[in-house]
Simulated assay, not measured.
Amino acid sequence: MTRWLTEAVPRGRVAAFRTLIYLFVAADLVVFTPWVRTRVSVPGDLYQPLLIGRLLPLPTPTATLVAVIFWSLLALALLAATGRAPRLLGWAVCALYLEWMIIAMSYGKVDHDRFGLLIALAVLPTAGRARHGDTTRTEAGGWALRVTQIAVICTYFLAAFAKLRFGGLDWLTGSVLARAIIRRGTDLADLIAQVPYLLIVAQFGIVAFELLSPTVFFLPPRWRLAMVGFFYSFHVVTIATITISFAPHLAAMTSFLPLERVRPLIWARRLVGRSPTAPTSTPPDQPPVDARAEASPLGDQVPAVGRPAGP
């Protein structure tokens, strides 16, 4: 079990995952959860902190507190994405983002799609230093990625458990998806809803897929990637039908992918190196030189350039 939990991975994979996660945190602040800043306009009596917020305890959000968290977290996440000071910046980002989420989720709604991301932020500081493109393997980095993977799969499995715990078998045969389509469905969802019993079949399929998600750990690497691809396709369909993105979960799920193969900076340098400037041309009065070597009658390779002219 210990060997599986600490299976070594290339340091380049850890570096790429770290950069992606911290860039997502910065994007989350300005794209996905900027509404958290509006919580300061809500009366403090409506602030009902989560259990962790009651245990610490954390203060009721104020305009100053939220502004300090927002700008500090944005700056530190961008710095952490560079890979510098991984422990210091990593722990700072983890603490600030946790408080950001406590503020966001303490007004009556808790999103389960952020569990994997929070775990990733908690374990990345333990992975140590890692550079993009480094092929040396690290068990500490492997442990960080494995724990994130477990959190991602727990998100699926525990979601199915919650469905059956609170909704019972009625969740499978009820109108859950129908209500979701009425509230926030797209034109594609409206077409799907017209097919008799298809939504019921989809509900059975969702619960089955979530309950079987742990099998991803028992598959060979190629099939594991195929199953992760299925996970992503499931969320593509979810976005296309009921406009729920699960973006934080999708970011954490990249822990399954061989991210060390994704080298955008290297690709960009190669593209820049292939400049469209034309190669040096030969003088107008000289015919173009054939770059291929020509064989002499004796079998020697005599380059075309410099071969004496003659009959």
Rank of each mutant, 00 (worst) to 15 (best):
V216E: 01
T241Y: 03
R224W: 03
A130K: 00
D187K: 05
R39H: 10
M101E: 15
R84A: 15
R165L: 10
F17P: 00
A252W: 02
R269G: 13
W91R: 15
G310R: 07
I153M: 10
E210V: 08
A130N: 02
V236M: 12
G306I: 03
S106L: 08
S245T: 11
G273V: 01
A63M: 10
F234I: 10
D111K: 01
V302I: 15
L29W: 01
L191A: 12
I69D: 01
L78A: 06
T135K: 12
T82N: 00
I69C: 04
T155A: 15
H249K: 04
F218R: 05
E99P: 00
A16F: 03
E210K: 04
F234E: 03
A67E: 14
I239K: 00
F24Q: 08
A67R: 03
D285H: 08
S41T: 11
A15D: 07
V30C: 10
T38K: 08
L219M: 11
R146T: 14
T2F: 09
A189I: 07
V262Y: 14
L65K: 02
I242A: 02
R292W: 09
F231P: 02
R54Q: 15
A140Q: 11
P86C: 10
T155M: 03
P220M: 05
R292I: 04
I182Q: 13
S213D: 07
A122R: 00
L20D: 04
A291H: 08
A122K: 00
T155P: 02
G12H: 04
I153Y: 06
R84F: 04
F166V: 05
K163P: 06
